[in-house]
């Protein structure tokens, strides 16, 4: 609170699968500009919580206050790319939906050194190339809030470097980041704060 505004908050949030509570009475506040690492074992509820923050699902009890979706960037487990469309078509599509400028997509491809294959369908790309395109989906519209679910998992070395770089830039711009990860060193290098989940509870 000290001076910096609250960007994201959860008040007594519960989320169930059937009768089973996947999240139990979660309450927290995250200040603007923070980088929060969400830790916990598999099945602790990390993905469920991140989905609530990205408004993919609503809590059954409690409330979540988050910025509008136009100001949010979300990366889930999947790449979110269409195989039949070209790299630039993919990025433009996602950019338009988020209200990003058309040049943003071109600039992103230049930055990740894929502008020479911008018109080729993603189907023909290698794994690493796809990852570099897919990161643009979350970053090209410069969102105020980034919600990233296991962003480092399965990335090749080059993409890991790229991701660390763009995360630093986003923090530099004053964006707020919430991310979950198993790759503790990569995350701890950036995190200003951690939240730990154990069987659906904050500990």
């Amino acid at each position: 609170m000290q001076g910096s505004a609250v960007m994201l908050s959860a008040q007594g949030v519960w989320r169930y699968f059937g009768d089973f509570p996947a999240l139990r009475d979660i309450t927290f506040e995250i200040e603007a500009g923070a980088c929060v690492a969400l830790l916990g074992h598999n099945g602790a509820g990390k993905t469920t919580l991140l989905k609530l923050l990205a408004r993919l699902a609503a809590p059954q009890k409690g409330t979540i206050a988050a910025p509008p979706l136009t100001d949010t960037g979300y990366l889930g487990h999947g790449l979110g790319l269409y195989e039949d469309l070209s790299a630039i078509e993919n990025l433009r599509f996602w950019g338009e939906l988020h209200g990003a400028a058309a040049e943003a997509s071109t600039e992103w491809l230049k930055r990740v050194e894929l502008d020479h294959v911008a018109a080729a369908p993603v189907r023909q790309f290698s794994r690493g190339m796809r990852q570099r395109v897919a990161l643009g989906r979350a970053f090209q519209h410069f969102p105020k809030l980034l919600v990233l679910d296991e962003p480092f998992t399965g990335l090749d070395e080059r993409s890991v470097k790229l991701l660390q770089e763009v995360l630093r830039e986003a923090l530099g711009r004053g964006s707020t980041i919430v991310l979950s990860s198993h790759q503790i060193p990569e995350v701890m290098a950036l995190a200003t704060r951690t939240l730990k989940l154990d069987r659906g509870r904050l500990v």
């Binding site: 699968f17 059937g18 009768d19 089973f20 099945g43 069987r199």
Partner: peptide, 11 residues
């Protein structure tokens, strides 16, 4: 209830 208990047990 049974389904939920099963999930709880798995957790």
């Amino acid at each position: 209830e049974i389904e939920s208990l099963r999930r709880e047990a798995l957790s």
